[in-house]
């Protein structure tokens, strides 16, 4: 079964077609890779799925529902969350607050409940705090919970962004170059973490990445994008042996 379907997805910026007529399916419970040279349109696809950019043409279908051009916060409610290529944390807040904020959907008390400190507010707030701490534990950030997010080492900032995305209990997690700027050791750890988290949270993961060993190592399915168009899709083995892909990545003479 497919959790996400892009059909004829197109995004134009003025005269530039950043994404052109892309058809693509993501299988439920899979880890799927989205690769391609710089400027291929990968991040733009994430922005289209999450409603950050408006779609020029085509459709985004999630669990058989058309979710094209919904607001980003609605996409999050529907069950898709993401991380950003250039990390976007709540920089001046603590690690704990970053996650706690994102837990908000798991409570339902109203403003009035909180102003009057109603039992419902207290009960749910306690629940949120437990949940935030639990997530920090899983993501190995517990010992830094009071640190200001901006003061975290780079690798941990990426981790925190994933933790924050998980707080919404998504069904589909979009990771935009989660290993960027990490050394091979950290990349390896991240791979294990992603696999672990996916099982624990029963997630489908769609991942943009330039580290080929990471992509080939954990993805079951890969799509290659070039100049905004789909170049190839298939298993890591297929992709590695696809002459068109090799050409796009290495360039070809003549």
């Amino acid at each position: 079964m497919n959790i996400l379907e892009l059909s004829g997805l197109t995004k134009k910026f003025g005269g530039l077609t950043a994404v052109g007529n892309v058809d693509f399916k993501v299988k439920k419970d899979s880890i799927t890779g989205l690769i391609g040279p710089n400027g291929a349109g990968k991040t733009t696809i994430f922005n289209l799925i999450t409603g950050v950019y408006k779609v020029s043409e085509g459709k985004v279908i999630f669990c058989n529902k058309n979710i094209t051009n919904k607001e980003p916060y609605q996409i999050a409610e529907i069950g898709i969350t993401r991380t950003f290529q250039n990390i976007r944390l709540f920089k001046r807040l603590s690690v704990y607050e970053n996650v706690l904020i994102a837990c908000h959907k798991n409570a339902s008390y109203s403003i009035l409940d909180s102003i009057l400190m109603m039992p419902k507010y207290k009960r749910e707030e306690k629940q949120l705090k437990l949940q935030a701490n639990e997530l920090l534990e899983i993501m190995g950030l517990s010992d830094r919970r009071e640190l200001i997010a901006n003061n975290l080492p780079y690798g941990l900032q990426r981790r925190l962004e994933i933790a924050r995305a998980l707080a919404l209990k998504p069904q589909l997690l979009l990771l935009d170059e989660p290993a960027a700027g990490m050394n091979p050791d950290e990349t390896e750890q991240l791979m294990l973490l992603i696999d672990d988290v996916r099982k624990k949270f029963q997630l489908t993961v769609l991942i943009i990445e330039h580290h080929m060993d990471l992509v080939m190592g954990i993805c079951e399915e890969i799509m290659v994008l070039n100049f905004g168009c789909k170049l190839a899709e298939g298993t890591p083995y297929d992709i590695q042996n696809n002459p068109k892909v090799i050409e796009a990545y290495l360039g070809v003479e003549g």
Partner: peptide, 22 residues
């Protein structure tokens, strides 16, 4: 409360707030 935290989140980083469902 979560409502106040959401407001603070908006002050800090609007796009990220939307992405976490605010």
């Amino acid at each position: 409360s979560r409502h106040g935290r959401n407001m603070i989140a908006i002050r800090e980083e609007e796009l990220a707030s939307q992405i976490v469902g605010i």
